[in-house]
Amino acid sequence: MGVGIAIVAARAGFTVRVFDTSSEALDRAHEQTADFLKKSVARGKLSPSDRDATLARLIGSTRIADLADCEFVIEAIYENLTAKHDLFGQLDQVCPPETIFASNTSTISITEIAAGSGRADRFVGMHFCLPAQLMRLVEMSPGLNTSDETWRAAWAFCEALGQKPVATSDTPGFVLNYFLIPYHNDAIRLVEQGVASPADIDIAMKAAMGYPMGPFELLDLVGADTQKLLCDAMFGLTNEKRAACPPLIRRMIAAGHLGKKSGRGFHHYDDSKMFGA
């Protein structure tokens, strides 16, 4: 996820320091970025000189001290509050006081992460969509202590990235995941109850609502393992029964039917060609 955000910022003309504790992850990020930008050139979306300039603006590092000159930091590490507090605590020591911190968290409260950052007034939520380098939406949420000045600056920065910010409150799942996770679970329960097959449900939702993808096509991209993590986080926070992980997801994970990445999920895949729907 972090790689996509870094591409967005570099493409928009900002110098970006890509920090990861793992050098292998940095190498992978570099490869993915070069690959993506190469495809953008091949599709006529980017000139070769813009590709070179974008790549030159991305500077990888495994040393947190290299972030000392950053004016804006967007965090996209593991979805774990302690790990995020630990990182922001270090960043608070390294970065100047005026640097704004943002988190790309999907489920953790912005106010809670900000509380461990040493600068809760200069902290915002910036939730990008996967794949960030293609999706323009960013759900922006202020924590309880975010200052108006920080909010305005972060909003302007998001627009300067060429993204489309929308304001949401700091509540579990913000807008997108709050609605999407239970909707997907409801669809899985229809299959569990024998109401219809995944293929028929996908056909129905696309034809009735004009949605570009059926719930199972999307779930197979998200992955059964990720859906379970999202459910566990959302149900733990909201206690809403529609967010609870359906038993079928657990069985699919045990059987290795994770979705497109494993060749089989609710649909079967062969050479990334989709069957079933």
């Binding site: 969509c129 939406l137 489309k164 949401t168 807008v175 997108l176 609605f179 004009g210 949605y211 993808m213």
Partner: peptide, 14 residues
């Protein structure tokens, strides 16, 4: 904003 989020994020027509 809710509508915009769901349209941009999931490609809903409305």
């Amino acid at each position: 904003d809710m509508d915009k989020t769901l349209m941009l994020g999931l490609g809903y027509p409305e």
